[in-house]
Nucleic acid binder design. Structure first.
Lengths: 165, 165
DNA sequence: ATGGAGCCTCAACATTGGTTGAGGTCAAAT
DNA sequence: ATTTGACCTCAACCAATGTTGAGGCTCCAT
């Protein structure tokens, strides 16, 4: 610890790595990326306050949900800067994230159904398949899957299926 | 089409891009990576047989489930080479994938619970939280998330919880 | 026979999320 | 006093998944 009097105890980068399970290089990287912050002691060593552990937990959790670091940073930037974030602050973030999770679970569930109906049944067609078509939040109107001809009547079930032609 | 007599009609790369919704550059890339194959005509142009559409569908679907191309290639390599894959062939692959999907959905669901219990309750600790601990099958050993060390003793429950210290 | 569309190759670049290594500093322990 | 371990910076690199651009064919229609 830095030799100061009545301060919150801090963690060196090595300790933080140990406690968080992250590599030191990752911590450096997060700091470079503005996801966490440190103070330096007289010897230029980093010191982290304990709430960084919670930030890291949040970062890891978010990554597991597939959120890119840039978005995580944006979320973290919304935390109060002048005081240590409280339970309520984290709660707000996590609520937001849970919404994402809900969406993602729903997507995957639909995907699973489609997989059963679509690949499973042997009719994996670009024309009808959710699996294969950018469901919703995918690429803009432009590049999506095309239907066969503009004005072609909707393919009958199984019409146009590679299996059946 | 290449001026051959009684052959299956083929798709040029442009057509395939149009039908699949993928960029030509991506198709080239997939071919370089061994995920799809083409024949060349007298002018060195690529021609794809129609079942490539299905391969692409499978590739896209798999990617949406988060499977890396290398793994997709491995799966596709298991398809019979001497004949056009049949429904049963695709069925086997899709069954495998559905298992992955099941796992993934379960993970996310657990994650959501944890998010409620763990971040939400204000006790986001490295020691106990599924969210924060590398549950199981995360990214390959390579550049991804690191787990502590093989054999590092787990931190004590509640010890080190930012809230409690 | 000429223009343009469509295609070819190959190399370089982009992005995300980090890791690795070289070369140097600092403080505590022997 | 020296050694050791932890730490510092900076630049280079890695892997996955493509995209972009330069430079050059080839085929079809006019």
């Amino acid at each position: 610890m830095p030799s100061e009097s009545c301060t919150e105890p801090t963690l060196t980068v090595g300790k933080l790595a140990e406690r968080s399970g992250l590599a030191i290089s990752a911590l450096h990287f997060y700091e470079r990326s503005g996801l966490i912050h440190s103070t330096r002691d007289s010897g230029n060593r980093r010191h982290y306050s304990r709430d960084v552990l919670r930030r890291l937990a949040f970062i890891r959790a978010s990554q597991r949900v597939g959120i890119p670091l840039a978005a995580i940073k944006t979320a973290l930037d919304a935390l109060p800067k002048r005081r240590t974030p409280r339970e309520a602050d984290w709660f707000m973030l996590s609520t937001d994230w849970r919404t994402r999770l809900d969406d993602q679970i729903e997507q995957l569930t639909r995907l699973r159904e489609d997989l059963t109906n679509c690949i499973g049944c042997g009719c994996l067609s670009f024309a009808r398949c959710q699996l294969v078509n950018p469901g919703d939040a995918m690429r803009g109107e432009g590049a999506g899957a095309r239907r066969l001809e503009p004005g072609t009547p909707r393919p009958e079930p199984f019409e146009g299926c590679p299996l059946n032609s």
